[in-house]
């Protein structure tokens, strides 16, 4: 039993898991690649989700309709299928793409659809009575949106947002299915070479994902403290 762990947890294996095989030649892989895809997708999908979510919460048809269409179509298709689309469709139109880009684009658009729903829910969660209080003080609609609605919406949606970010980080693991050398693929290769200790190998990979995701959640928890949120985002 301990033997197995010792065979999995060698310095060489750890190096491969963390940065990949070709790190010396400037190609990142392993956990580094996973984090790279994950964090870029999180950033991109947050921007998309914010814009689309605000459009979704609008009463105007011209904004609402395209946003709804986007959200509904991307939410009902498996991410893996989107990855295949992102990989095979651009060449048809003569656009160069790469495995890395297709995973990133698919993951960003997919997560963006979910974040849009969270943003919309957050905006709707701000009590109408609260807006009335702001109007009575003579604030303009734009000031109300910026100082009363959006900060409250953002604060209310932090837990849901953290959940989505974690899902997004987990979803980077699909990269290995189209042949990228991410954490999952490296782990799989190590498992294939060692043959006799799959339990240890896969538990190790799962553990790495677990630590990364819990870390991500902890960081976002810091924001959920109203005091620090207030200091960070509300310079009134």
């Amino acid at each position: 039993m301990m033997d197995n762990w010792a065979r999995v947890w060698t310095p060489a294996n750890w190096e491969r898991l963390l940065v990949g095989d070709l790190f010396n030649r400037g190609e990142i892989g392993g956990l580094a690649l996973t984090l790279c895809i994950g964090l870029l997708a999180i950033a991109g999908s947050t921007v998309i989700g914010a814009v689309v979510g605000i459009m979704r919460a609008s009463d105007r048809k011209a904004l609402n309709l395209p946003a709804t269409l986007y959200v509904q179509s991307f939410r009902n298709v498996p991410l893996l299928i989107l990855v295949f689309w992102a990989y095979f469709l651009p060449p048809v139109f003569g656009i160069q793409t790469s495995k890395f880009l297709s995973v990133l684009v698919a993951l960003t658009l997919f997560t963006g659809a979910y974040i849009a729903e969270i943003v919309q829910g957050g905006i709707r969660s701000v009590a109408a009575a609260n807006l009335e209080a702001a109007r009575v003080l003579g604030l303009t609609p734009r000031q109300i949106q910026f100082w009363v609605v959006l900060p409250q919406a953002f604060f209310n949606m932090l837990p849901a947002l953290a959940g989505r970010y974690v899902v997004s980080m987990k979803n980077t693991s699909l990269a290995f299915l189209i042949g990228l050398m991410d954490l999952t693929e490296i782990g799989k290769q190590i498992g294939a070479r060692l043959m006799t200790s799959p339990v240890e190998v896969y538990l190790t990979i799962l553990l790495i994902y677990f630590v990364v995701n819990r870390g991500l959640v902890m960081c976002l928890r810091l924001l959920e403290n109203r005091q620090s949120f207030n200091r960070l985002f509300l310079r009134i």
Partner: peptide, 22 residues
């Protein structure tokens, strides 16, 4: 909702309606 109201008319509500994030 798009009207801007006269700021010189103060109003106090039954449910207080303070801004919870501030």
């Amino acid at each position: 909702k798009l009207d801007t109201l006269n700021p010189r008319i103060g109003m106090v509500f039954q449910a207080f309606n303070l801004f919870p994030h501030l």
